[in-house]
Design a protein around this nucleic acid. Structure first.
Lengths: 156, 156
DNA sequence: CGAATGTCAGCTCAACTGATATCT
DNA sequence: CAGATATCAGTTGAGCTGACATTC
């Protein structure tokens, strides 16, 4: 359903809503859009959060493997890290063992920021999944993870 | 999992994959991306297909309500319809009852094109949902439709 | 040298904004 | 006149490409 400017609601085409991939695309876009709006209030974007999460989960890393983990381009990673290091959320330093590499480390401030962003993400998720019971949410998570793992594994 | 240039696979951050909304976003984006690639071979984009589907489901309509149904901007709708009418898939004509309005009608060629595009979409969907059983796919469709209907209804 | 890493400038495209003309 | 409809030019931002310097 789409709500128009005058408040009326017009149905979506059943031809499209009958496609699971259409619903995936629409619902996923809506979730991303809502979180993006919240992050914008802190002058952050989704990639900032993703980079912080990757560093928290896997520890310090060079920029290229970090970029590959997240499916982001190295050129964009450079810019993202410019911003995160300027605000003190990560530290960049040359790898003494291989001076081509730049090791990126999460700072305590970065870890604290990530915790706050995860709260935002959880709030958005609670909004989006409100129509589902706890059991249904668990089922959805399980099914999506299977699709995700398979789809990402087949890439490239 | 993301596959790197050298063929190695690095895991995604569990902090993110634990979020259902993250999986929704990623899987939805992947589905959209795959269908976009197929449509590009015919020099079409997703909006072309969405417009054809809306016309097939709801019959001839003016451009503004058509745009609102799909959540597309009227300025973009004008451009999309330029292309679809140039290729003979829709017909535009002034509404004699209100000459501000332009009535858009699906042609037989447009209906045939839509049938072909739906085949493509179904093929992409079969790829994406391959890891799931028929029963699981039905569950996923049902859960997503509940979320979609609720989320779109609350907009505006 | 060839290959890998990171930086930077610039390109493309979709989404969006604003101005204008036409019509009720 | 105000309001609605459609068109078109132009802006913005994310994703991506290519050139370059540095290091192995």
């Amino acid at each position: 359903m789409e709500r128009a400017y005058d408040g009326t609601v017009s149905d979506s085409p059943p031809t499209l809503t009958g496609l699971t991939t259409y619903l995936l695309s629409k619902v996923g876009k809506e979730a991303r859009s809502r979180l993006t709006a919240r992050l914008a209030e802190r002058e952050l974007r989704l990639w900032h959060m993703a980079v912080l999460a990757a560093l928290a989960d896997f520890g310090p890393d060079a920029q290229r493997p970090l970029a590959e983990r997240l499916g982001i381009h190295v050129s964009d990673m450079a810019r993202i890290l410019d911003e995160l290091s300027r605000t003190g959320h990560v530290v960049r330093e040359r790898d003494p063992a291989d001076r081509r590499r730049v090791l990126v480390t999460l700072t305590p401030q970065g870890r604290a920021l990530l915790a706050g962003l995860m709260d935002e993400a959880t709030a958005v998720q609670d909004e989006m999944l409100a129509p589902l019971t706890a059991r249904e949410r668990a089922t959805l998570q399980r099914l999506l993870l299977r699709i995700y793992t398979e789809a990402e594994g087949r890439k490239g």
